[in-house]
Amino acid sequence: MGIMDQFLQQLINGISLGSIYALIALGYTMVYGIIKLINFAHGDIYMVGAYIGFFCITILHWPVLPALVASMILTGILGMLVERFAYRPLRSAPRISVLITAIGVSFFLEYTMMYFVTPQPRTFPSVLEDAAYHFGPFVVNNQQIMIFAITIILMAILTYIVQYTKVGKAMRAVSFDTETAQLMGINANRIISVTFGIGSALAAAAGVLVGIYYNSIDPLMGIMPGLKAFVAAVLGGIGILPGAAAGGIILGIIEALVSGFISSTFRDAAAFAILILVLLFKPSGLLGKNTNEKV
């Protein structure tokens, strides 16, 4: 395989991986945009989503799409419950308290899950037949097509919700200025809850897709992708939805290129190096605007 072919192939792999990051990053960025919380538990929500999908497929013998939808709904509810019981009581507490609580929720989800499903990785059943298609120099397999398609559909739905529905407008209002939004008659608590629900549902979709793509899930699978997705959100400009999507894809591509051309052990380091460079040189992210503190 020539270097160019290899490059193109890594590009495809990168976009698949990046789509997953993008789906998780959307939830991160929505939550950060609305309550300024780095929700460290978001990666674990994604893990729970993967397990729910796994059980729907293996135990209930559901086809993949109903399993995906069920996982999104149940995980969305889980996200709302976490917000309701762990974060809402701390709405006026110092930021660090909420952050530590998020770390606590993260540990709780990971190890409670581990208690029930054991730390052993599970093999995700192959729900799609292995088939690869050649488009000129590109080789794309079934799983990748499914990831692209579902990611694009979900992003389209999300864009519709945020831009055109009443809830979406309220979400944007609350993230812009919670107090004023409340004065306009918006129930901020409900909107925050919905935001967690939507974000968690997207993470659940990412979880199921990762299961299909890599065939393996485990209770700690959410830690790294969770962090990476945060990097993606920062890269695109935290709080900005298209930024999170773009950041996720870019990060996925860079990681695939680093593992393809340098070494897969430096994959994670590359992600963090990007994070630090972005923070130092353009902390508002690729699509963000700079703001100054008033003295």
Binding site: T265, A271, F272, A273, L275, I276, P283
Partner: peptide, 28 residues
């Protein structure tokens, strides 16, 4: 020196990233 320009969450996440980079470099 460079990271202390950041504050709050950004500093937290940058130091987290740097800690991981240190570890990954050692690992290699």
């Amino acid at each position: 020196l460079p990271t202390m320009r950041l504050s709050g969450d950004y500093l937290a996440i940058a130091t987290l990233g740097l800690g991981e980079i240190i570890r990954i470099v050692i690992m290699n």
